[in-house]
Amino acid sequence: ARSAPAPERPAPADRPAPPEGERPGGWAQQVHQLARQQPVASAPPQAAKAAESPAPWKPPKDDPFLRAAQDQGRPAPLGRRLAARIVDSAVLGAVVGAVAVPLWGRAADHIDAKIEQAKQSGETVTVYLLDGTTGSYLGIVLGVLLVAGLVYEALPHAKWGRTLGKKLCGVRVLDIESHDTPSFAAALRRWLTYGVLGVLAVGVLGVLWCLFDRPWRQCWHDKAARTFVASNSR
Score class of each variant (00 low, 15 high):
210 C>S: 10
87 V>N: 12
163 T>P: 03
40 V>L: 09
233 S>E: 09
114 K>V: 08
61 K>G: 09
227 T>P: 00
185 A>M: 14
116 E>S: 05
184 F>Y: 14
100 A>Y: 11
44 P>V: 06
185 A>V: 14
96 V>E: 14
29 Q>E: 11
53 S>E: 12
28 A>L: 12
231 S>Y: 13
14 D>S: 04
157 H>L: 02
105 G>E: 10
112 D>N: 06
36 R>N: 11
64 P>W: 06
105 G>F: 15
189 R>C: 11
83 A>V: 15
68 A>N: 09
211 L>D: 04
170 G>H: 01
141 V>R: 02
134 T>W: 04
99 V>R: 09
157 H>P: 00
177 E>Q: 13
181 T>F: 12
193 T>V: 08
87 V>T: 12
99 V>N: 10
145 L>E: 10
223 K>L: 08
63 D>H: 00
227 T>N: 02
9 R>C: 02
53 S>F: 05
26 G>E: 03
118 A>L: 03
219 C>T: 09
82 L>I: 12
159 K>S: 07
79 G>C: 11
31 V>A: 10
186 A>Y: 09
7 P>H: 07
92 L>D: 13
72 Q>K: 11
4 A>D: 06
97 G>M: 13
204 V>G: 09
33 Q>N: 10
195 G>N: 11
42 S>F: 12
21 G>A: 15
135 G>H: 01
124 T>N: 09
124 T>V: 15
104 W>F: 10
81 R>T: 08
2 R>E: 10
201 A>L: 14
73 G>C: 11
225 A>M: 08
221 H>C: 03
217 R>S: 11
144 V>N: 01
23 R>C: 03
18 P>C: 00
222 D>L: 13
230 A>Q: 02
18 P>R: 02
102 P>T: 14
107 A>K: 06
135 G>I: 04
71 D>A: 08
144 V>I: 02
129 L>V: 13
234 R>D: 15
17 A>V: 12
124 T>M: 10
40 V>N: 14
2 R>T: 06
